[in-house]
Amino acid sequence: MKLTHGVCGITLAAFLTACGGGGGDGYYNQNSGSGSTTTPTTPSTDQELATSVLNSVKQEGKYLFGAYDLNDEKLSKGYIDHALDTFAQGPLKLTLDIRKVDLTKYPDHYRDKCFIKSTTDYRACYVFKGEEIKSLLTGYSDWDFDITADDLKNIKLANDNTSPNLEDYQSNTRIYIFQNENNDKNFQDVTITGAFAYPFQQSWGLEQTKQKRFVLINSTTSDYKITTSTIVQDPDTAQPTEKEVTTGAMSVYKDNTSTDGDLYVVQSGSGFNVLINDNPNVPFAEPISFIVNSTPGNTNNATYQVKLSGNQVLSLPSITGIEGSRVENQSPTTNAQKFNGSIYLEGPNIFTFKQSPNGTTLNFKHVINGISIEGQSINQNGTVSTTLKTPFMQKFTF
């Protein structure tokens, strides 16, 4: 997948030398508290390597420590933050929320065979698409589930080589809930495909604080793809026209054999592109891409679980290519970075940890660019205090 700017070198060593930790002050100078303490437990060379990766992760992935807030305009959002919040608040949450809908009230949304031309999937389904999703679910009133050329008006990409282009983002959101011959599996498989947009808060100390993420589940980088017809604007005539569109998809299946609460399993790898237009250093929007890999029954099985104890667990054993760039002019850099690895979060409120009650804990165990990052965060009235076990003992606050 091509980005506006070249990403850093493939090897970890190249990553550390080629990638800056950010640009100048202001937006970039918002890392964890300066009073952090470190106890070395590794040889100096390895510690320098781990420190460099950890510093980048603190800046680009506050989400990994629970120190993320979608609606805090003063909190800088990094590449990992954009990627994980998109995954958690978008495809994952939507496929969970839609299960609360009473399907018997929507017989007109039922298809006797969901995919007419398929020779491998004969299941029936209920399908909901576009803006009608807002009437089914609460909490999505300011989301856009039908991305058109008008929605993308006044947005520019860096150049003609940027992929996906703006036309690729023109799609609606579609959610499929599948029937099954086996009642134990009935309506447990929910698939989401297409594109959507939703707001977040980010200030650069100028005028605008309310920003928007445009999200595409990309067919090029997804194992699961769905082709459908949609209405787009003809680039030559500017008139609405029907077009066959193929987008990536994410399937989330509820495994009812779980003996510890509700277990949801991502059925195949899905690639995502997130278009961010908040950076006032440049006139163009900057894309972020990432892939969540998953194979049921395999060690890279991506899951979300709500345990009987009430704890939530997000386990993403294989994330590849969280990458993007953020141009800075005064201290010139493209700040191009790429992260690979695994993510594990566990606690009673893992997605909105900063809003959880005082004293709530979040356990994490990640591997980012080959460096293990394990520890626990505690919410202290909105201040997140983090204690690391690996790659070395360290305490810091956000």
Rank of each mutant, 00 (worst) to 15 (best):
A14T: 06
G261R: 05
I371Q: 11
T397W: 00
Y126Q: 02
S289P: 02
G61C: 09
T86W: 05
H366R: 07
E346W: 02
Y126M: 03
P40Y: 13
L54D: 01
E286T: 14
G269L: 00
A285S: 15
T104Y: 02
T42M: 13
P107Q: 02
Y198S: 12
T361M: 09
P164A: 10
P164N: 10
Q355Y: 08
N279S: 11
Q239K: 15
V327W: 04
E73K: 14
G130I: 06
T259H: 03
G24P: 04
Q380C: 02
F290I: 11
A302M: 05
E60P: 00
G139K: 14
G324S: 14
F87N: 04
K254Q: 15
F178Y: 15
A83Y: 00
E242N: 09
L166M: 09
F364T: 11
N311K: 14
I98K: 06
T138I: 04
K93E: 13
Y264M: 03
I371W: 01
N300S: 11
T209Y: 05
V292A: 14
E328Y: 11
T42H: 05
Q337H: 08
F396T: 02
S36C: 06
D262I: 09
I10H: 07
V127D: 03
K153L: 07
L75C: 04
V232N: 06
S331C: 05
T259I: 11
I288E: 10
T259Q: 14
S163C: 04
F15G: 12
T209F: 00
D97Y: 00
G261Q: 05
S141Y: 00
T120P: 05
F115H: 15
E181P: 05
E346P: 13
P332S: 06
L92F: 01
M1R: 13
D102I: 01
K212F: 03
A285F: 07
N161G: 11
D160C: 03
D142Q: 08
P40N: 07
D151Q: 07
Q305N: 12
N183H: 10
I322K: 07
S342T: 02
S251L: 10
Y169R: 02
T209I: 10
K62S: 13
N180D: 15
V232C: 04
E48C: 06
G23L: 01
A14N: 12
S258R: 01
P164F: 14
Q47S: 10
L75F: 14
K129C: 00
I378E: 13
N279G: 11
G35W: 08
F272Y: 15
I98M: 09
V265Y: 10
H5V: 03
N161W: 00
A14G: 09
